[in-house]
Nucleic acid binder design. Structure first.
Lengths: 193, 193
DNA sequence: CGAAAAAATTAAAGTAGTTGAAGAAATCAG
DNA sequence: CTGATTTCTTCAACTACTTTAATTTTTTCG
């Protein structure tokens, strides 16, 4: 599996010695998911943090009517998991499912703790990761409060142009908080206007 | 100013030696805000992380129509700021304004960096803080996707019963993403039902 | 490739939430 | 304490978005 992408991702924020990089890689396990396979199911405990080497996943909850609400997508170079479950050992509320055949590198909590012990600067790396995720979530909340459906779609396409191509509209609607029918109507309108 | 609350808040997550606690307190500055005074304005750089000793603030953005969208409230024992601006030095998109007369303890970025150097376990403390904030935001996004206005209000009251007493309905509406008029109508209906 | 499943489009009817306006109640500042 | 300001309530008209359902287009995978 392509471990270079992981090292490059980490290298964006902290500088690792070769020996540290070797140690780090030894603590990650590769995992392959077929399209529609689950990395995590609601009710399970999330036992790993997961770096996406290839492919695409969605993190979502299911409400009592069986509707999906997508919290995030992840593609190559992104990290996914359920942090609350991972850290506390509680059951996750979320499903994580592959939208395409996907390759991951996984690290378990004991191994991550060992990594923090032996390569303390990795604590900094994960703090930065978390900061970025936090900021992205804050912006998303702001947008969900300030923008109507058309505005949220426009922002989404501007911010993640690649996703527009790659992810079915139905899923994008479940991420943006609108029905696929309405999204289709918006797109038609914006073509015309 | 009541510094015990800050030490207690930190003590929930990391154990400090007396000397470390003294050093830490020496790096925080007290600040007092009158009701309606600003801790931060849109366009300014957020120069401090702020621990609320007493009082209540709101973090909000203003849209082009002049409507407020509240990202979070903060009361005694909470931390507020604009992390993106604080970390990157970019201009903030948010206002932070006191809803009541408020007392804060502030730490600047240089002083926080010094604190990390001299008391490394504080890096862990802020990571935990960030994790909790991240998880709370994730839950809020999930709710904004899954719940209608009535459900969001019910959840808010359940999760933050104190806020229901203390914060004007108008502001709660701006936090929950609905109009004050509609919130008033919901409340009337739920009294009856 | 070809049959079957999933996704996208369109249209019409329905509903949750908004807007504007006006009076009543609560809170604030001098 | 009092006048001024802000907040809350109520109502009726309006609109952004949903729902249902039928048809077409695209994608999947054996």
């Amino acid at each position: 599996m392509n471990t270079a992408l992981l090292l490059q991702n980490i290298g964006n924020h902290v500088r690792l010695e070769p020996a540290e990089a070797d140690l780090l890689l030894s603590l990650f396990q590769p995992k392959v998911l077929k399209r529609k396979a689950f990395l995590l199911r609601q009710g399970e405990v999330c036992r790993s943090e997961n770096f996406i080497v290839k492919g695409c996943v969605k993190v979502y909850s299911l409400d009592e009517n069986g509707f999906e609400h997508i919290l995030m997508f992840g593609i190559e170079g992104w990290w996914v998991g359920d942090l609350l479950s991972f850290l506390t050992g509680r059951e996750s509320r979320y499903h994580i499912e592959a939208l395409e055949d996907t390759e991951l590198l996984q690290i378990t909590k004991p191994d991550l703790d060992e990594l923090y012990e032996r390569v303390p600067k990795m604590e900094r790396f994960f703090r930065i990761l978390l900061q970025n995720a936090f900021i992205a979530h804050m912006e998303r909340i702001d947008q969900s409060l300030s923008l109507d459906a058309a505005g949220r779609y426009a922002q989404f396409i501007r911010k993640y142009p690649a996703f527009g191509q790659r992810i079915p509209q139905k899923q994008i609607a479940a991420y943006l908080g609108m029905t696929p029918v309405f999204l289709s109507m918006l797109r038609k309108k914006s073509m015309a206007g």
